[in-house]
């Protein structure tokens, strides 16, 4: 139970920091909406809805990247990362807290972006929304670990997309498939499988990337 209490305290802290500083969410929102407008001009007349769904997934992944790149910035300032690592809580709780908070920001951005997409381009059904949710979980779970790894390096903003994009290809396949396929179950299954494998892997390896012994 203390594990969940730690996660709750850490998540609440992230939400509060964001509420105060408003560094991430407004940028994500503005980015995803601008991207949708860019898509209008990138999609020639008569390209059809499938192309729009494909571009939607590009927008989702890049919006998530934008949020993830800032995920550990509050901890990098004033050396808070060391402070958290020293605390007696299980280190993986730090990862869970950050994943949940990033997921909350991404979902908040999508609450605006997805209706806008449906209005501008093509309808989204319930299955497609489940696909979005599953892919969000996967990208935030893996992304918050990769962002923590990149945070220790030079050129961290540059490094994160390079680390994360090859890992997000299965998510894009699953997401686009669940939006346009006539048999979307297989794609949802792929997304769930991805979430399961990579969430466990990230959860188990977080401690290793933030400590030395």
């Amino acid at each position: 139970m203390t594990y969940l209490a730690d996660v709750a305290a850490l998540t609440r802290k992230d939400l509060r920091v964001e509420l105060r500083a408003q560094d991430t969410l407004p940028a994500m929102l503005l980015f995803v909406l601008s991207t949708l407008v860019v898509f209008h001009f990138a999609l020639p007349e008569g390209t059809g809805e499938d192309a729009a769904y494909g571009l939607l997934w590009v927008a989702i992944v890049f919006t998530a990247l934008l949020g993830l790149a800032r995920a550990w910035v509050p901890e990098q300032e004033h050396g808070v990362f060391d402070g958290l690592v020293l605390a007696p809580c299980d280190r993986s709780a730090i990862w869970v807290g950050k994943t949940v908070a990033t997921l909350a920001f991404l979902l908040a951005a999508q609450v605006v972006a997805l209706p806008a997409f449906a209005l501008f381009f093509a309808p989204l059904d319930a299955v497609a929304l489940v696909g979005v949710l599953l892919a969000d979980i996967g990208i935030c779970a893996v992304g918050s670990l990769m962002a923590a790894m990149a945070a220790a390096g030079r050129a961290r903003e540059l490094l994160l997309p390079l680390l994360l994009l090859p890992l997000s290809i299965p998510l894009i396949v699953g997401g686009v498939g669940s939006a346009i396929s006539t048999e979307p179950e297989r794609y949802l299954l792929l997304l769930a499988l991805y979430d399961g494998i990579f969430a466990v892997l990230s959860w188990a390896s977080f401690e290793y990337v933030v400590t030395e012994s």
Partner: peptide, 28 residues
């Protein structure tokens, strides 16, 4: 173990009370 580093190890965007409350919870 208590550790004082060069940097204060507290969140800039939070107040003193909120910072100490968070670490107080984590340290039980």
């Amino acid at each position: 173990v208590g550790f004082l580093a060069h940097e204060p190890l507290v969140y800039r965007a939070l107040t003193a009370l909120e910072n100490l409350d968070l670490f107080g919870r984590l340290y039980r």
